[in-house]
Design a protein around this nucleic acid. Sequence first.
DNA 1: CCCCCCCC
Length: 602
Amino acid sequence: MSQLSSGICRRLNEAPQEEIEQLASGHTVQLLSVKKVSPTTNTTAPTDRYRIIISDGVHFIQAMLATQLNDLVTAGEINKNTVVVIDRLACNFVQDKRLIIVLDLHVVSRDEEKIGTPTAPPAFQEAPAPADAQVTPSFVASPAASSSMAQAKQPQTRTGPPGRSGKSVYPIEGLSPYQNNWTIKARVTQKSDIRTWSNQRGEGKLFNVTLMDETGEIRGTAFNTVVDDLYDRFEEGKVYYISKARVNLAKKKFSNIQNDYELSLEKNTEVEECLETTGVPMMKYSFVPLSSLEELQKDHTCDVIGIVKEVGPIGEITSKASNKTIPKRDLTIVDKSQYSVRLTLWGKQAEQFTADDLPVVAFKGVKVGDFGGRSLSMVSTSIMSIAPDIEEAHLLRGWYDGIGSGESFQSHSSALSGSSFGGFNRNEMRHLSDVKESQLGMSDKPEVFSCRATIAHIKSENISYPACPTQDCNKKVVDVGDGWKCEKCDKTFERPEYRYIMSMAVADWSAQAWLQGFNEAGLVVFGKTADEVHEIKENNEAEYNALMAQSTGVTFNFSCRAKQDTYNDQTRVRYGISKIIPLDYREEAKHLVELLKSSWAK
DNA sequence: CCCCCCCC
């Protein structure tokens, strides 16, 4: 049985803030409960938050799990009765309540019984709240109800750690709207240009910064006169103490920063450069190989690192929406996965990019597009770093200068890959009922979708046609007695080459649909050439029927093209097979495991 | 209070 750090819960419940954060590390506690906090009413679907109850065997207290630890819950690493060591925590004071946030922990043991019979610690009276406080928040208040609390004044009695008088440095991960007396120490990883806007609600100007510390990232925005005050104070890459900014709920739709909140930099916001920058990381990347870009959904963001193999000329486009002209420049980057992808720079970055010495460039938060299969584009929150001093960059440099420069690179637009050119995209799988209900293909242009379905029936009367054997002709040829004539090639051949043209009913759990398949589909379904099957059909009806029977009931992954078609004044959608892939059960199982681990499974 | 991120 584990030895718990008895007494720690009572101390966490009573100690003043500056002591709590020093109490933080090394205490062994048992989790009596790990529960998701009921979602807030806002519609932006913030990250899940977990409330935990920690016990030292004598007393128990409530705390919150930092969202960066959510994976521990979803992966089943921690749950009821898990014994853990708290490595780091933070404490928020919300008027007379304290909110403990566990920032880091590690598991000591699982499958324990509840240790001891812990009780709630004796009531403890915090320093009295100021008289102008109006709201008494519950333990975890809804962020929607937070604006009045964010204004609540708090006693300023803290002394803080050495290095900065009167201020304790607060982790970005722990920031919330419930408290306004904090100072973060953060690196500016990205600073936008000053942007102006004008709409029915008014006009103005703004800029954004992305701030990062060891615990997380947050976006900060300044408007109008604050732009004049602060824009020149921030320099990308430098570290600042920042305090007295307002913490608002982030509208996650508009940014890929991993934080439910964002900062509004205001008139009285304090910004002070910090030269002591140890422990403040330069940048956090999560690189994806260029080969796997097609697994990402269009419009999602990702981090990539590559060699800039080609620098396109500076160009200009005219935005359809705003009618503005914007400079652009396309780069082609390649990586170890032996793929290449086009990446577009905009504006100043497009104009100023000159590197022609095949540099390593890292990109954070670039947007995935589907032009040419897959493409990448810088957006305002993206960060480009030329020849960054990180391990991945050095490895890539070494690989390219050694063997990479001699390799050839696959582009996403090749017929073999790329979702918009007949590739199968697991992340954009549709159910057949959904395909039909959403009237895919009813618009002017064809639309593609992927699905998994089982062959229920193959129209067996006519599955192939006699085709011209000329490479890439494929036209139907006619029997002219002494041979087979192709009108297009104006040639007569001794024998045609049969090609599949088949119509088959497929079904998934939701619906059935008729799919049209051509030669490639037939080869996969029957495992024989159309010539061979034609031969069987002519000579052995029983064998032909057996082949048809054995080819039904088989499941495939498909990628299809839905297209409108008018025949006899009737317009309907036809689904063409652009790719048919036999199931790889190892691959399917791997995907299911990933699905079980994801928040979807909850 | 923005939130557009463009084009082919």
